[in-house]
Write a protein that binds this DNA or RNA. Structure first.
Lengths: 136, 136
DNA sequence: ATCAATGTATTAGTTGACTAGAACACTGTC
DNA sequence: GACAGTGTTCTAGTCAACTAATACATTGAT
C-alpha cells in the first residue's frame, strides 16, 4: 500500500482559541499552499481521514473544503477526492497574505496611535462589512 | 411639568439591518455627542422612557448605556439618571469618528484594489482582534 | 454486480450573542 | 415612612453560527 497519496500537512488545531475549527483548517491549507508545501493538483487528505486525524467531525472538514472550493482554491470530485485547484497561484500567495496582514496591522497601529480602542475600530469595520453584505 | 428634562434625540432604529439594537443606540448617542446635540452633563432619556419610545426592552437600553459607561462616555447614578460624562470631549468627536471611518474605508479600498475579498480582510482582522483579546 | 473509498445531504445538539419579562434596590420628595 | 421615579439584577426565550451523528450518492476496481 502507498503510505499516503497526499501530502500530510502538520495540522495544528487550537480548540481553546475560539477560532472555528473549519476556519483553522482553511487557514492552514492556505498557509501550506503559500509555503509551497501544496501545489496545484495535489490531493488533500480525504474528508474522513482528516476528520480522524484531527478528532473532528467529517462535516467540519467538509465545511472547510467547501468554503475553499467556493473561493476557487480547491476542487472536489465526488467519489474521487479533493485537490488543489489548478488556478491557484502558489508562490505569490505568501506575499499576498503577508501584505494583507501588514495592511490590517497598519490600520490597527494607526488607529491605536490616534486613540481609538480596538472595539471602536471593530465596530466601524463590522459596519462596513454589513453594509457591503446587504446590497446584493 | 417640564416637557422633558433631557434632550430628546431623534432615535431611528432599523430592526431589519441586523445591527444589534443596543449598538444602534450606542452609535446614535455617540453621534449626538459628536454633533453637539448632547454635551457634558446633559441627562439622557431614562431607561424606561427610551425603552418605551423605541418599543424595546429596558434591558436593551441598559446594555447600551452600560457599554457607553464602560468606555467613559456616560455616567449612571442609580435612582437619579444617566448623564453624558464630563470627560467627554464633544467637538473633536465628530472629526475623530470621521477619521476612523476614513481609515477603515481606506483599508477596505486598498485591500479591494489589491485583489483581496472582504472575507479575507475580515478573517485577518478578526485574527488580530482575537489575539489582542486573549492576552489579558 | 459488488464492494470499498470517496464526497454529499439531512437532521440535530451546543454554544454564545441578543433581547425580553419581572422582580429588586437606590434616590429624592412629600 | 410612603411613594414615585430611577437604575440593577436575575432568569429565560430566540436566533444564528458551529459542530456532530447518521444515512445517502458517486466513483472506480474487482
Amino acid at each position: 500500500m502507498s503510505p499516503a497519496p497526499f501530502s500530510s500537512i502538520p495540522f495544528r488545531l487550537d480548540m481553546q482559541s475560539g477560532v472555528p475549527v473549519y476556519r483553522q483548517i482553511m487557514d492552514q491549507i492556505h498557509g501550506a499552499i503559500a509555503a509551497g508545501a501544496l501545489r496545484a493538483g495535489d490531493q488533500l487528505p480525504t474528508v474522513r481521514q482528516l476528520s480522524v486525524d484531527l478528532s473532528v467531525n467529517p462535516n467540519t472538514v467538509v465545511r472547510a473544503y467547501r468554503e475553499l472550493e467556493i473561493r476557487g482554491v480547491l476542487t472536489t470530485q465526488q467519489g474521487i477526492g479533493t485537490f488543489i485547484s489548478s488556478k491557484t497561484v502558489a508562490p505569490d500567495e505568501a506575499e499576498r497574505q503577508r501584505k494583507l496582514t501588514q495592511m490590517v496591522g497598519e490600520l490597527m497601529a494607526k488607529a491605536g496611535a490616534a486613540g481609538y480602542t480596538a472595539e471602536e475600530v471593530a465596530t466601524r469595520f463590522l459596519e462596513f462589512m454589513s453594509e457591503q453584505r446587504r446590497k446584493p
